[in-house]
Nucleic acid binder design. Structure first.
Lengths: 207, 207
DNA sequence: CTGTGTGAACCCATTCACAGCC
DNA sequence: GGCTGTGAATGGGTTCACACAG
């Protein structure tokens, strides 16, 4: 296929497809059609085929997609075929939940360092990782860590982000309810639980 | 303005604008221009004006928007002008974080009931709310609860969702990494941390 | 005959540009 | 003069329909 601009929306959906595929893989399903995948997510089959087509032709006409092969392809597209190391800043309640969250593994993520500024926490261990002083963030330079997870109070978020960027982090998952400014080369995704919840009542007929 | 279909995207952005406005309000700022708001979020001013225009005309030409008035208007649009009660199902680590999360208050949310299926947890209190047996979910019928938050393992998510729908819940914030099926009248927003993280590496030049 | 891949058509959100009001 | 509000133009994502491969 000749080059065409790939919609961000398509990229956005790939991890969703991937999760479905990995689930099918667990069930030892060998092939899957765009129709099956679509039913699974509640989208249209042509959307899925089109999304894939931006990146190449992965299926077999008349048959469908090889689950194993397709999931490998998508991982490669998303840069998930190599495992990624992440650093977590903020070892509070939220931080502990993130550390314990099993879901990262299936995409090949590993949190290999944890920092906090609370002297009481520094030195302690959670999930077998010892918490280090955030002022020593430069320690991560020795490791190949390219992702940062911010789980600190809002006021500290920007400062932490700045430090992470200094250390060469390329992507940030931000749990603080605020926008953080970073150089364009760094990708930030912010998760704001309260804001997501705030989107629900609009769709609810006022009682 | 005469009727026109309102893009979902515009609705999606309103809570973001609202957060910025509430922040300005804290700083006792009286008026704000679309330009200022736009700079704050890193979007374009005409985007903001257009978004508002779908719902009415809230500003004053040559001046801008009254922060207080505009935030009230947006709250009304989003159905946030009345406070909402939510029920939390799943009192594990994640559940505890959600309960302790201060961010819900600014949008007028209150978690008034918590359920779990773990006998060890039932009867205990977190954040002054006692955990009840999930089999007694029907207790919430007496209260006016219209939102549900699901923080249980994936396998249990669909069942919990079904129960919540039975109880008349109108919107669900789902933290389980899976799609859940509900009647069309019920709005579901799923937050899948791992999936969000999985979206980052695509934008990172492979090292 | 089944299911993929894709140019073309369509639709809708974004962007523009400017009229209108303070 | 400054800033909003909005039709019109643009641009791009989605949907369609069908050629083609198995």
């Amino acid at each position: 296929m000749r080059y065409r601009k790939i919609p961000d929306e398509a990229v956005w959906r790939l991890p969703m497809y991937l999760r479905g595929l990995l689930l099918s893989l667990e069930k030892s399903q060998e092939t899957i059609s765009s129709q099956e995948l679509a039913d699974f997510f509640g989208v249209h089959p042509w959307q899925i085929r089109k999304d894939f087509s931006y990146f190449g032709a992965f299926g077999t006409p008349g048959v469908g997609y090889k689950v194993k092969k397709l999931s490998t392809q998508i991982k490669k597209i998303l840069n998930l075929h190599v495992s990624h190391k992440a650093v977590l800043v903020g070892a509070g309640n939220l931080g502990a939940v993130i550390l314990a969250y099993p879901g990262f593994k299936i995409y090949g993520f590993e949190i290999t360092a944890v920092f906090d500024n609370n002297p009481q926490k520094i030195g302690q261990k959670i999930e077998n990782i010892s918490i280090k002083d955030v002022s020593k963030l430069s320690l991560i330079k020795r490791q190949k860590i390219d992702l940062g997870i911010i789980a600190v109070p809002r006021k500290a978020a920007q400062e932490v982000a700045d430090r992470l960027v200094e250390m060469g982090i390329k992507g940030i998952l931000n749990f603080s309810p605020c926008r953080i400014n970073v150089p364009k080369k760094v990708k930030v995704i912010t998760i704001d639980i309260a804001m997501d919840l705030a989107r629900l009542p609009y769709y609810i007929p006022s009682s």
